[in-house]
Amino acid sequence: MQTKSAARNIFFGGTIFFFVIFVGLVAHSYSYIVTTSTNVKTLTEAVAHGKKIWEENACIDCHTILGEGAYYAPELGNVCKRLGGKDAVMGMIEARQENEEDTRQMPNFNIKGKDLEDLAEFLCWTSTIKTQNWPPNEAG
């Protein structure tokens, strides 16, 4: 029984040890994100609202954003740079028509007006995040 309780103590002690280090590093990363890697000044209400539109339509289950999500459609973390600005992004989302050719299609979400603008605003804000130079190239 001796070795068993020793094993248990090592388990609990070690877990707490690593978790505390982890929480400390995440706390530091939190401040790094809000001071260094993302621009909280340009994170306007429009951007926050755009993120909501992004989520309500579950864009993440076709696209990746900063490399996370689904692998069916292009990476959108850098789409604003790839397409050359907010208007082009809005144009791409609006232009979606079903059943053109034999390739994958993006549904037409009928996102209009301020919703569309804020959605593009969110994607363009995202492309300003400092991501240790990922992705390797514009293709994403």
Binding site: A7, I10, F11, G14, T15, F18, F19, I21, F22, L25, H28, S29, Y32, I33, S37, T38, L66, G67, E68, I129, K130, T131, Q132, W134, P135
Partner: peptide
């Protein structure tokens, strides 16, 4: 013990390119 000792800080493999240090 092995799972948590490695897995907790292993979370770092998702913190490479998302704006984290």
């Amino acid at each position: 013990a092995l799972s948590l000792f490695t897995g907790i800080l292993g979370t770092g493999h998702h913190y490479y390119w998302i704006g984290t240090p």
